[in-house]
Simulated assay, not measured.
Amino acid sequence: MTAIELKSRVYQQIAHLDEAQLEKLYELLDQEFVTPTTKSSQATKKRPLGNMKDKIWMTDDWNSDEVNQEIAQLFNEGSVFPKE
C-alpha cells in the first residue's frame, strides 16, 4: 500500500467525525505516537567514568574470613522469615 492510498483510507475513515471527536483523536495520537524530546536527550546522555571515585569507601575487613563466615552462617542457618 502506498502512502497516498493509506492517506485516502484514513481520510475516508475519519470524514464522518465531528470536531470534538477529531480533537480527541488528535490528543490520543499525540500521546501515543509523539515522544518528548527531553526523554530521548536524557537517554543518550553519557555518564563520565569514575564520577564516584573517592565517594564510596569500604572498611579494611570487608572481605575478611571472619566476615565471610558470618555471612555464610546467616545464609545457610538463618530462617527465611524473621522472628517477631
Rank of each mutant, 00 (worst) to 15 (best):
E84K: 07
Y11A: 15
I4R: 12
D61L: 02
L22S: 00
W57Q: 15
V67N: 06
H16I: 10
Q13E: 08
M52G: 06
I56L: 15
E84A: 07
M58Q: 11
I14F: 01
F33S: 07
E19P: 02
L25R: 04
A15R: 04
T35W: 15
R47K: 09
K7M: 14
T44D: 04
Q31R: 15
K45P: 02
S41D: 12
F75Q: 12
Q21H: 09
Q12T: 08
S8L: 11
G78A: 00
A43L: 06
E84W: 05
Q21T: 00
V80A: 13
K39T: 15
T35D: 14
E5F: 06
Q31E: 07
T44Q: 08
K55I: 10
W57V: 15
A15S: 12
L28K: 15
P48A: 11
E77F: 01
N51M: 10
Q69E: 09
K39E: 07
L28Y: 15
I14P: 01
D54K: 03
L74V: 03
D65A: 02
D65N: 01
P48Q: 14
G50K: 04
N76Q: 10
D54S: 14
D61A: 06
T37K: 10
I71T: 02
L29C: 13
S8N: 15
E27P: 00
V34M: 13
P36N: 11
K53N: 10
L49I: 12
P36K: 15
N51L: 13
T38N: 08
N76R: 12
Q42N: 06
P36G: 14
W57K: 14
P82I: 03
A20M: 00
K45Q: 08
K83L: 07
P36C: 04
Y11P: 01
K83R: 10
L74N: 08
S79W: 05
K45Y: 03
S79I: 09
K53W: 10
I4T: 14
V67Q: 04
L49K: 12
G50F: 01
K45C: 05
H16F: 14
L17E: 02
E77N: 01
E77W: 01
N63S: 04
Q69Y: 05
K46C: 02
D18V: 01
T35R: 14
P48D: 14
Q13W: 05
S41H: 04
K7Y: 06
F33T: 11
L74T: 13
